[in-house]
Amino acid sequence: MIDLIVRVLDRLFRLREPHKGFLSRSVPVKLNFSYCFGGMAFVCFMTSVVTGLMLSVYYVPSATDAYKSVLEINNAVWGGWLIRSLHKWSATILIIFIVFHTVRVFVYKAYRPPRELNWIAGSLTLVLVLASGFTGYLLPWDQKAYWATVVGTSMGGTVPGIGPFVVMLLRGGAEVQGATLIRFYSLHVLWIPVFMFMVLWAHFHMVKRQGISGGL
C-alpha cells in the first residue's frame, strides 16, 4: 500500500532519481547514535511547527482575548490540550537536542574546516529557537507570561548607552502591553519561523554537500 503510494508519487514527480546520490551516499564507518541528535532536533522542530500552526487556528493575539483563547484551546477544542502540550514540550525538548547535537559536533571536532560556516548556521538556529521560546512564552498572556516578559525585556535595559532604546524596541512602548503581545506574536509565528527555515535549509544543504565528517 505505502509502496504503491510511493511509486505513484515517484512516477509523477520523479523525486527519487535526482536524490539518488543523497539517499545512497557514503557515510563514515564509525557512526553511532550521537549522530542522530541533529535529526531528533529537527523532528522536534517540525512537531512545534505543525502544532504551532494548529494552535494559530484558535489563538487570538489580542490583549483582551489572548488568555481566553488559550483557555478555550485547553478546555473546549477537541484535543486542544494535547496540541498545546505537544507544542510546549517539543519546543522544550528541541532546545535539549540542539545542545546535545552541539556537544556531539564539538566532541567530534566536526566544526573544523570546511565546516566552519555550518557551525555558525547551527549557532544561529539555537539563537532563533531561544528567541522563539522567549516570544512564545508571552502569548498565553497570563501572570507568569507577563512578568517573565517584564523581567526578560528589562534585561535589554542593561546594555550600556542604548539600554532604554532597546527596551522600547522590545516592548513596543515603555511597558509590556498589548503592542508587546502583537510584536511577540508576529516574531513568534512569522519572522522567526521564516528565518529558521532559511537557516535550516542552509544547514542541511551544507551537510549534504560536505558529507558527514569522518569521526574522531
Binding site: 494548529m54 487556528v57 483557555l71 478546555n75 473546549a76 477544542v77 477537541w78 484535543g79 496540541i83
Partner: peptide, 15 residues
C-alpha cells in the same frame, strides 16, 4: 485522527 481538532464543536468541558 487529528482532523476533529479543526471542527468547531465544543467538548463542553469549559466552565
Amino acid at each position: 485522527a487529528g482532523l476533529p481538532y479543526f471542527y468547531p464543536f465544543s467538548t463542553g468541558k469549559e466552565g
